[in-house]
Amino acid sequence: MVGLGFRREFAEEMISGTQITPDFIEFAPENWMHIGGYWKKMLHRVVEKYPVLCHGLSLSIGSPEEPDKEFLRYVKSFLDEYQVRIYSEHLSYSKCDNAHLYDLLPMPFRMDAALHMAGRIQQVQDYLQRPLAMEIISYYTPVSPEMSEIDFISEVVQRSGCQLLLDVNNIYINAFNHHYDAKDFITRLPLDKVAYIHMAGHEQVSPEMILDTHGHPIADPVYDLFEWTIRQIRPVPVLLERDFNIPQMPELQAELTRLKTICHQQWKHHELVA
């Protein structure tokens, strides 16, 4: 299955299904909770047409603070209401000192942070009664690391029992920005825990830095890394993210088609995933 992030900019096109045909959609619960009117109707229409996966933004699992219980209650209710198949979040934090910053901030790769995060994930999984698929974020600087990124991630996954959302573009960006080998990094991940893949575009803004923009087509080297990556894992849903600089629908459809073709080629011996 290859899906597309649901955005208001192309909601009509997704609902009509004439120019673009994802196998599923994904959206952030935070962007659709507690709303009514026009967009609630649109949400219901799109949910009737496509299976739904949700990708959260505000859980801030790495925050020093306790999880927001009211927010979690709404998330649980939302996931049930829309029969969401996978709920994913980020191995990061976006809130500190009880203030939201609305960005995905890098966790210090330290044992105390890994233990803290694993505990929080367990707490949320227990409450939601479902596993979380945690995304390895793109990040632009390590913060006072005392262990490697791969050890940090492995520790969190092993201790929490969570699944992984593998954003291949993020791994490509991180490998470039932090000078490591993307394939080696992926090989060392607990790949049996990968439950979901994200793909997106990026922009190189300087000789030393690539930004994770979600505003450009997927770059060819990321397609190559994707093709290599999915050979290492069982079939999982794959999502195309496009949040900015939205192109004409045929361009997005072409990206979906290319991803589907790669999946079909690499996973043809596996059963289809639902």
């Binding site: 790495g62 925050s63 500190c96 901030l105 105390d112 803290h116 913060v143």
Partner: peptide
């Protein structure tokens, strides 16, 4: 499970800079 002081302190300093 609670964090040791180190990580929350780092997070505080990181986010304070981002905000201020």
């Amino acid at each position: 499970m609670s964090s040791l002081p180190d990580t929350p302190q780092l997070q505080h300093r990181f986010t304070q800079h981002c905000r201020t």
